[in-house]
Structures are given as structure tokens and as C-alpha cells.
Amino acid sequence: MDEKDRERDERGRPRNARPRDGLGRPLPRGAVGIPRAPEGLVRPPAETIAEAQRLLDADMPFHAHEVLEDAWKAAPDDERSLWQGLAQLAVGLTHLRRGNVSGGRKVIARGVVRLRPYAAQPPHGLDVPGLVVWSTDVLAALDQGLGEGVPGPRLVR
């Protein structure tokens, strides 16, 4: 498939239309996959958080990251790092679930750096202090070779 024949979304942007599994890995064409969140959907913060938590609870961190990424892209400047950090935690967990411990560690470490400035006054009912603890605990467990079965984070108190 050359550049002009690439699959595109309704806005004409390149987008792979192959179905995906619960961790976002492409499946063979024609397979039944997990429906993906519509890209570019701007939700109110409470709705974003609830949907991302639902997906994390269903062990679908890749899909949670897509929801959080939309919030990050649409966020006001003073919250962009917050939403980016949340998305990075979900991406890091995705890497861990896929067996990429090194990648998961790196992304979670970047995410917690972005979240720490919001810990003193967390917006939108987010449990930023708890997310910092979760991230620190996950990173410590990975340092000890204990990355198997890491639980997903709780976004709210």
C-alpha cells in the first residue's frame, strides 16, 4: 500500500483501520476487535476521567490512553501537563501489559514528573497524590523485577 492508498479517517488523516485487541495491538483484517474511542472527542473532565477509569478497570490501558490523549490535546495550557501525564501512565501500563518493561518504566517515569506539580491542588477530583504514589510504587517494583500483574491506577479518590 503506497502513501496515497493509506487508510484514512473521516478527516483524511492516516489511520490504520485494522481491528485492535484490548491492549491496542493490531489484529488481522476481518478479526473482531475492541471498539476504539472516537478520536478527537472532547469530553468534560468528569466524563473523561470516568471513561478512562472504566477502561483501566477493564484492563484496557491503551484505550484509556486514547481518551486521556484527547483531553490533553484539548486542555487549557495550565492543565496540558496534567492530562499528558495521565495519558503517559496509561501508555506505560500498556507497555507493561505487552511485556515491554523498559518502555513502561520510561513512560511512567515521565508521566509522574508531569503529575507532581498538580499534587498540592489536584483539579477535577483527581487523586494526584495517589497517582504519584502508584507510579513510585510501580517504578520501585520494576526495579526489583516485580513488574508482573501491576494493578491499574485509581484516578479519583
Rank of each mutant, 00 (worst) to 15 (best):
G125Q: 14
G111S: 01
W72M: 09
R98A: 14
R105L: 06
G111E: 07
R105T: 12
V128N: 04
P76E: 13
Y118L: 02
A120L: 09
A120M: 03
L131C: 14
V113Q: 03
L115A: 07
V91T: 10
P129R: 07
P122V: 03
L86T: 01
D127A: 06
V113K: 11
D127F: 08
S135C: 11
E79S: 08
P123D: 10
V113R: 02
R97T: 01
D70T: 14
V107I: 15
P76W: 12
V128T: 01
L115D: 06
L126C: 10
G111L: 00
L115G: 10
H95A: 06
R80F: 06
V101C: 10
L86E: 02
G103M: 08
T94E: 05
W72N: 06
S81R: 05
L126K: 02
D78S: 11
Q88S: 05
V101R: 15
G104R: 09
A120Y: 00
S102L: 12
A119C: 03
L68R: 02
G99K: 12
P76G: 15
P122I: 05
V67F: 13
Q121D: 10
R116K: 07
L68M: 04
L126Q: 07
D127T: 08
P129F: 00
Q84E: 07
S81L: 08
G103L: 01
G99V: 15
R80A: 08
K73E: 11
W83P: 00
E69Q: 08
D127Y: 05
A120D: 12
A119V: 06
R97A: 10
T94S: 15
D127S: 10
G103Y: 04
R105K: 15
R98F: 09
A71S: 08
V112R: 08
V113Y: 01
R97V: 05
L96M: 10
T136C: 02
V112H: 01
L126S: 01
A87Y: 04
T94K: 03
D78G: 05
W134N: 03
V91I: 12
S135Y: 05
V113P: 00
V132D: 03
P76A: 12
G125R: 07
R110Q: 15
Q88F: 02
A74Q: 10
Q84N: 09
A75L: 04
A87M: 12
G104Q: 08
P122Y: 13
S81M: 07
A71F: 11
R97P: 03
P122L: 04
D77A: 10
P129H: 07
G130W: 12
S102M: 13
D127P: 15
V101N: 14
V128H: 06
D70L: 10
Q121A: 15
G130L: 09
G103E: 06
W134T: 06
R105Q: 11
P123F: 09
G85Q: 04
V91G: 02
L96I: 09
G104A: 02
L68C: 08
V132H: 12
L93N: 13
I108F: 12
R110T: 08
S81C: 01
R97N: 14
E69Y: 02
L96H: 12
H124V: 05
R116M: 01
W134I: 04
Q84K: 11
P76Y: 13
E69T: 05
L115R: 00
S135Q: 09
S102E: 15
R116G: 00
A109Q: 06
H124T: 03
R114K: 13
P122W: 03
R80W: 00
V107E: 14
R80E: 05
R114L: 15
Q84R: 11
R116E: 06
T94D: 12
